[in-house]
C-alpha cells in the first residue's frame, strides 16, 4: 500500500516520502550544525535567501542526514521506514489554511475528511517545509503559530480536533526577503518563532564544486560558469532581481555536457532565463561572450 511499484515511477504517500539517498550539498558555513541543533531542540527554522541558492536542497539534505543519524528510530509513525519524512509545500498566493490542514471530500454517502499535507506531517513526525511562506494567505498564520511555539499543536476546527504534533515534527519555512514587496513581509510575530538561517549565493569556489558535481562538467568550465554567475549577480540592483541562480548555471553546464556550444547554452539557460528585457539580455550576453570563447 505504501509503495506502488510501476514501470518507472514510484508513488509515495506524502508522509512516507523520505529522502533515501544522500543529496549533494556543500555547506556555506555552519548551517548544518545549527539546523541539527535546532532540530534536536525542535526549534522551527526559517531559511532566508534568494531563489536557487540551495534552500530546498539543504532541507532535503538535512532530512536525510538527520534521518541517518537517528537510524530510523526517529520515525515511529509505522516503524517501517527509517529517516524523517519530508513534506514540502510550495506556497502560492491562493494557498489557504484548509489547503494545508485538510478538507471534506464528497463521498458516495456523504463526506469524507482528507488530511492536508501539514496535518499528515504533524501526525507522521516529519519535517514540513513551507516554501515561500509569505506568498500564502494570511489565515495560514493561524495554524502556523500554535505549531511553532511551545504548544506544538494543530487545531482542526472543522473537525473540532486538536492534534499534538509527533515529537519528530518540525516546521521549516523559507522566505526571500529581496523578492517580496514590503506588503508581503513576514510578520514579526511569525518571524520570531523561528531561528533564521541566511543563504546567499555560494562563493565561486564552492559554486564551482557544486557545478562540477551537479552538471558533471570539468572543473574549468565550472569555474567559468561560476564566474558568469558572479558577474550576473553584480547586476542585482539593475532590474535582474536575484541574478542567476546556481540552478541555471548547472543547467547551462548540463547543456554543454550534451554538446550544446557554451555560449548558446549560457544564452538559453542563463540570459533568457533571468530576464525578458532585451537590452539587459544583450548586456548579459556580452558578459557570456567575454567569458566563454
Amino acid at each position: 500500500m505504501a509503495q506502488v511499484q510501476a514501470t518507472s515511477y514510484r508513488e509515495y504517500r506524502i508522509e512516507e516520502y523520505v529522502v533515501a539517498r544522500e543529496p549533494f550539498y556543500v555547506p556555506q558555513s555552519d548551517e548544518i550544525e545549527i539546523f541539527t541543533a535546532a532540530y534536536k531542540q525542535r526549534i522551527p527554522v526559517l531559511l532566508k535567501g534568494p531563489t536557487g541558492v540551495g534552500k530546498t536542497r539543504f532541507v532535503e539534505y538535512m532530512a536525510w542526514r538527520l534521518g541517518q543519524s537517528m537510524g530510523g528510530k526517529g520515525s515511529k509513525a509505522n516503524g517501517a521506514k527509517p529517516g524523517i519524512p519530508l513534506v514540502t509545500v510550495a506556497c502560492h498566493e491562493d494557498l489557504t489554511a484548509s489547503d494545508l490542514v485538510g478538507r471534506y471530500l464528497l463521498d458516495t454517502d456523504g463526506t469524507r475528511w482528507l488530511d492536508g499535507p501539514l496535518t499528515r506531517a504533524v501526525k507522521a513526525g516529519g519535517i514540513c517545509y513551507l516554501d515561500e511562506v509569505v506568498e500564502a494567505r494570511k489565515d495560514t498564520t493561524v495554524i502556523v503559530h500554535p505549531l511553532t511555539d511551545h504548544r506544538r499543536v494543530l487545531t482542526i476546527d472543522k473537525l473540532g480536533q486538536i492534534i499534538e504534533a509527533d515529537p519528530g515534527f518540525l516546521m521549516v519555512i523559507s522566505y526571500n526577503p529581496g523578492y517580496q514587496t514590503a506588503l508581503k513581509d513576514l510578520k514579526h510575530s511569525t518571524r520570531q518563532r523561528f531561528v533564521a538561517l541566511e543563504f546567499s549565493f555560494p562563493r565561486p569556489e564552492v559554486e564551482t564544486k557544486i557545478i562540477v558535481h551537479e552538471a558533471g562538467v570539468d572543473e574549468d568550465t565550472a569555474e567559468q560558469l561560476a564566474k558568469l554567475g558572479e558577474k550576473v549577480r553584480n547586476l542585482g540592483d539593475y532590474g535582474l532581481g536575484e541574478g542567476a541562480s546556481t540552478r541555471v548555471l548547472i543547467y547551462a553546464g548540463r547543456l554543454m555536457n550534451e554538446g550544446v556550444p557554451a555560449r548558446r547554452a549560457c544564452q538559453v539557460a542563463v540570459t533568457w532565463g533571468i530576464t525578458d528585457d532585451a537590452q539587459l539580455q544583450r548586456s548579459v550576453d556580452e558578459v557570456v561572450t567575454s567569458i566563454f570563447a
Binding site: V232, S283, V287, S290
Partner: peptide
C-alpha cells in the same frame, strides 16, 4: 551605452 554600462557593472560589481 546602456548595454555596455550594464556589462561593465556586471564585471566590476560596482
Amino acid at each position: 551605452k546602456d548595454v555596455v554600462r550594464v556589462y561593465c557593472r556586471a564585471l566590476a560589481g560596482e
